[in-house]
Design a protein around this nucleic acid. Structure first.
Length: 425
RNA sequence: AUGAUAGUAACUCAAUCGGUAGAGUAGUGGUUUGUGGUACCAUUAGUUAAGAGUUCAAGUCUCUUCUAUCACCCCA
């Protein structure tokens, strides 16, 4: 059997790359507007980075990483997410040395997680993410969310909602954690195995459990809001106020718990609501991660960011029937009438390209009719017909494929004539 | 990791009880000796995901593997 692509990896074929290029161009445009600069970090890192950064108790680290030993027995991992690598680079290159400057970066690239496949969830996938490091003003949280919302808007997605929650700071979270453990402990034996394990590891995630979702004690569980200290409460209120200033609609979701250990304070998600979209409805997830840089042995640095899944963005564009612009055309298709005219057609092609005219021609000595069919397939704006009769008089034919008119032109003027017509277009 | 469903031409899909693998689209050639898109005609295209088994006979039944989809899990 011929070799297939590895499980969970897939090809983006030449007739669909335009979709990615389109989304990428919009992403870069928006990041430019918000003054975020691109950062490119390695696709593989030392495994420790993710164990310490993302957190040992997370699903990502405990069961989804592509980890291997290199030839010197170093443990290497293909990046499962982008934030840890960015923070590592931030510390390693001391990007914090410019005090009172917010470091605003974005990344765009492949991530790898060993997961069970599903639509909108593959093992190699593409994320676009943003990180703002070195600032703790609530307006930064709002700015980051605004960037995400504007990307959605610019793409034309409508069936989307923004959910937001706060996890509070370390102190609040510890208190809440205790309260949760105390609340569930007496009857934890009646919960599912996952919950029993999570209770000590990360009790917040018990709240997410779908198996035990309907248990009465679930509804009576202590709420994060009641355990927030004044600073955390105040901070979250300010974030919401800033979102209101911007007119961004959101839904408060007290059960929104991100699965990565580094999050605190603001967490949010952008979800698709379209009918017929896959089971994976989260387009974007993110939040604040004060303390992560410190964990990676950098200075105490607040940070916030998010990540989008590009595959899911494309799926949701398709689910909402939003056309993605496709620049599939050539300016000129060159038709060569016979073998005798092939040489001059070939030279003409090169000359047009030197003049930035996008063109193509036949490579199989096909009949004139077939060549015109190709011209249509490539959406040629004009064809240049190179024929023996015309050549004797040093002429060529320019045919306008839309107006269906054609003109005989001096060979010496052909580039000029084409340029004139293409500009008018 | 587990459970369920599916995989047939480049694409979308047919094929009755186990009985000759078939259409539309796309491609190629022609109707029109050197001019396209629509139309008409012709034509290419498949080891039925891979492998094994049952049977006179397997796309169809059984088993294994691979891949996808759904559930579960989680998230982007």
């Amino acid at each position: 059997m011929p070799i297939q692509s590895a499980k969970g990896a897939y090809d983006i074929l030449p007739n669909e790359t335009y979709k990615w290029q389109y989304i990428e161009s919009i992403i870069r445009e928006i990041c430019e507007l918000y003054n975020y600069k691109e950062i490119r970090t390695p696709i593989f890192e030392n495994t420790d980075l993710f164990v310490r950064g993302v957190g040992e108790s997370t699903d990502i680290v405990s069961k989804e990483m592509y980890t291997f030993l290199d030839k010197s027995e170093r443990s290497i991992t293909l990046r499962p997410e982008g934030t840890a690598g960015v923070c590592r680079a931030y510390v390693e290159h001391k990007l914090y040395s410019e005090l009172n400057y917010l470091t605003k970066v974005y990344y765009l690239g492949s991530m790898f997680r060993y997961e069970k496949m599903q639509k909108g969830r593959q093992r190699q996938f593409t994320q676009f993410g943003v990180e703002a490091l070195g600032g703790e003003d609530p307006s930064i949280d709002a700015e980051v969310i605004s960037l995400a919302v504007n990307l959605i808007k610019k793409l034309g997605l409508k069936e989307v909602k923004v959910a937001i929650n706060t996890l509070g700071d370390k102190e609040s979270r510890l208190k809440y954690r205790e309260a949760l453990i105390n609340h569930f402990k007496p009857e934890i034996d009646t919960f599912c195995g996952d919950c029993q394990r999570r209770l000590e590891l990360n009790p917040l995630r018990v709240l997410d459990c779908k198996v035990d979702h309907d248990k009465p004690s679930m509804a009576k569980a202590p709420k994060m809001v009641d355990y927030l200290n004044d600073y955390s409460k105040n901070f979250f209120e300010k974030v919401l106020k800033h979102l209101d200033y911007l007119g961004i609609e959101y839904v408060l979701d007290h059960n929104l718990v991100r699965g990565l250990d580094y999050y605190n304070h603001t967490v949010f998600e952008v979800m698709s609501k379209v009918e017929g979209f896959g089971a994976q409805t989260t387009l974007c997830g993110g939040g604040r991660y004060n303390g992560l840089v410190e964990e990676l042995e950098g200075p105490n640095t607040p940070g916030i960011g998010f990540a989008f899944g590009l595959e899911r963005l494309i799926l949701s564009l398709e689910a909402e029937n939003i056309a993605i612009p496709d620049q599939n055309f050539v300016d000129v298709y060159i038709v060569s009438m016979s073998e005798k005219t092939n040489e001059i057609a070939f030279k003409l092609q090169e000359e047009l390209r030197q003049n930035y005219i996008k063109c193509d021609k036949d490579y199989f000595n096909r009949k004139v009719k077939a060549q015109f069919k190709s011209a249509d397939r490539y959406n040629a704006r004009f064809t240049v017909v190179v024929g023996e009769e015309e050549l004797e008089n040093q002429k060529m034919i320019i045919k306008d494929m839309i107006a269906q008119t054609q003109e005989v032109v001096e060979i010496n003027n052909i580039v000029l004539e084409l340029k004139k017509r293409l500009e008018v277009k």
